[in-house]
Nucleic acid binder design. Structure first.
Lengths: 137, 137
DNA sequence: TCAACAAATGAACACATGCTCATATGATAT
DNA sequence: ATATCATATGAGCATGTGTTCATTTGTTGA
């Protein structure tokens, strides 16, 4: 909603850099030392990335019920076989699902029951939030 | 590792579409009926998306310790003020953090303690996995 | 050996995401 | 009022992501 650019930065010797004097260096230091390593937090974000797509979430959700072949899942989600297959590969390399071959058919199953817990925790959260924010989110 | 394309699909009346005869329609039907709605699962994936970035994870992790102003966080993560501010906005609109103004300074804090649980569940998972896969992941 | 079929995969594409840069906004003190 | 400072934000850009299309791979039965 910017109206106009009447005047651009008047006189300023060098480009503005945030060098806040108001920070709390002791708090920053202390927090820095108490946080998990940056690598761990990176891995954690990578882990959550797997859940950050509705197709993958739906695939996992389906596999909570039972193992299934690729075609089952594709039909269930009403999506192409290729799309499902690509996502299954990602889930496989993330060690969230495992495969079992039976003739031409490949069956996929959950490889990690812990997933169910995290999934449910998230689900609980959004359902609760949906209630308390009255569908605003 | 494809060698060569000696011959392309010989005689085929129409483009190949996966119409697997081997699917398990009853399983598909049953599972379909037991899964949460597609909207709910979409929301769930959106929720996990917030955790699916290392900058945001680190911000949340910092706020587990204490409320902080934008500059504190920027210094803590060694990133620009703008980058942090953009991410904080996302966290704000997702209702994961709340703000409190004190003069020129804006303090950010966790708005939802449930987050801590989900964070820890994920952390536990990757640490356990790291152990059992012996750093392969 | 080859046709048929389930699944996997590479390329291409359209779209989303995260950062930086420049600047705007809002608050305080002079 | 205006300079200063903390924070917010829009544009632009580079990179990442998910799907489709065309094709390959692997398995079975004729």
């Amino acid at each position: 909603m910017k109206i106009q650019n009447v005047e651009k930065k008047p006189q300023q010797s060098e480009p503005y850099v945030c060098e806040c004097k108001e920070t709390h260096p002791d708090l920053v230091k202390k927090t820095q030392s108490q946080m998990p390593s940056i690598e761990t937090l990176y891995d954690l974000s990578e882990f959550f990335k797997v859940f950050a797509d509705s197709t993958r979430i739906r695939i996992l959700c389906a596999l909570f019920e039972s193992e299934m072949c690729v075609c089952d899942i594709a039909e269930l989600l009403e999506m192409g076989q290729s799309a499902i297959s690509h996502q299954l590969r990602l889930l496989r390399t993330s060690h969230l699902v495992r495969t079992r071959r039976e003739g031409k058919t490949v069956y996929y199953a959950l490889d990690d029951e812990h997933i169910r817990l995290i999934f449910n925790q998230g689900l609980e959260h959004i359902l609760h939030r949906r209630y308390s924010h009255d569908q605003k989110v």
